Simulated assay, not measured.
Amino acid sequence: MKLTLTISEVKTQLKSLNHLDDPLVAELRTDTRKGVQSALVAFEKRIQKQIIAKEAFEKRFKYEKSFWSTGNQYVAGMDEVGRGPLAGPVVTAAVILDESFDLIGVTDSKLLTANEREHLYLKIIEEAIEVNICVKDRDFIDQHNIYHATQLAMIETIQGLQHQPTQIIVDAVPLDLNIPQTTLIKGDQKSISVAAASIVAKEYRDHLMDTYDKFYPGYDFAHNKGYGTAKHLAGLKQLGITPIHRMSFSPVPEYK
């Protein structure tokens, strides 16, 4: 069968395809037009990228699938955001997924754009069995130190779940709980549940810092999220500290 599609129509058709073995693809390979062959190359790159992403997704699901296979129905992925900033809270999140979860784009929140994170955040909230968040403010952090404050926030997050997990996958921070735990270094790159938790925690905290930027202008919180950037330090020097600055973090006390 000889194709009579224009190059524009070929591109439109290829956008709707998701398999390299589609009969249309085989037919297009015989088309000698340069525009068609360029469209095929772009199509093949897109499909290969999808295949790689799917394989990576399945690999990051291996811990959850292993636990599910041994009868652990509720596996909670845990992560935190905000241990390093000079200002703002630390936020922890726990996410419980099931085998139907299929958001291939879920990975370490630091590897995603702001638009990707926001889109995935909304989809995670929609598709997860349960999501829980805990926020600990400046006073709590200064009282307990950031590491212990993070641990306590994570414990509170788990205890607040309606579906109590029988297994926890946590990113690098061991928790004093009578629940079996798998502690992973860079867990948000190795576990889908932890990656989902990292996205939820980061999006929640980022929105908080955007709000704080309106209450405390001059520190560039909307962009630095409380980290010690040049603009943030310039704001501290000019305006002093705010109620969300951590007094236990250097150099914040210098600006009191």
Rank of each mutant, 00 (worst) to 15 (best):
V36H: 11
K62N: 09
V25L: 03
V95K: 06
Q167Y: 11
K256L: 14
E99H: 13
L122D: 10
G240I: 00
R46F: 00
D220L: 11
L112A: 01
L5D: 09
T12F: 12
T6H: 10
K49M: 09
H223G: 07
L17F: 02
K110D: 12
A114Q: 14
V173Y: 09
K225A: 13
L152P: 01
Q13M: 13
Q143S: 14
A114I: 12
K2Q: 14
A172P: 01
L120P: 01
K62L: 14
G235H: 05
R83T: 10
V106R: 13
K65D: 11
N132Q: 14
Q143K: 15
T211E: 15
L86R: 05
T92E: 14
D206P: 04
I192L: 15
E130C: 07
G228P: 08
I158A: 08
I141C: 03
Y74V: 04
A149Q: 04
R29T: 00
N18S: 15
V36M: 06
D79A: 12
Q181N: 05
E55P: 03
G235A: 08
I192M: 07
S66F: 02
S8P: 11
S248D: 07
L122S: 11
I168K: 02
V194P: 08
Q238A: 08
I146S: 04
T4M: 05
R33C: 06
P180V: 00
V25F: 01
Y74S: 03
V135H: 11
A149W: 08
A76R: 01
R46W: 02
K62T: 14
L152Y: 02
L120G: 06
I179Y: 05
M247K: 10
H232D: 01
L103E: 14
A114R: 14
A153V: 11
P85A: 10
Q143P: 05
N145E: 03
K2F: 09
D98P: 01
H148V: 15
L111M: 13
A234G: 07
Y212C: 04
I241K: 05
T113N: 11
I158L: 13
E58Y: 13
L122H: 15
T182E: 08
F61M: 07
W68L: 08
Q181C: 00
H245N: 01
I179M: 07
A153H: 05
S8E: 15
D188C: 07
F140S: 03
D31K: 10
G187F: 12
A172H: 06
I51D: 01
T107K: 10
F61N: 11
Q73M: 14
K190N: 06
A230D: 13
R205F: 00
G187W: 10
D21A: 12
Q73N: 09
A128M: 04
L175Y: 03
A26N: 08
Q189S: 15
M209I: 02
E9Q: 15
L97R: 01
G240W: 00
R138L: 04
L111Y: 05
I155D: 10
H223E: 12
T113S: 15
E58A: 09
V173P: 00
A128Y: 04
V81R: 14
G105K: 09
V106Y: 12
R60G: 06
N224D: 07
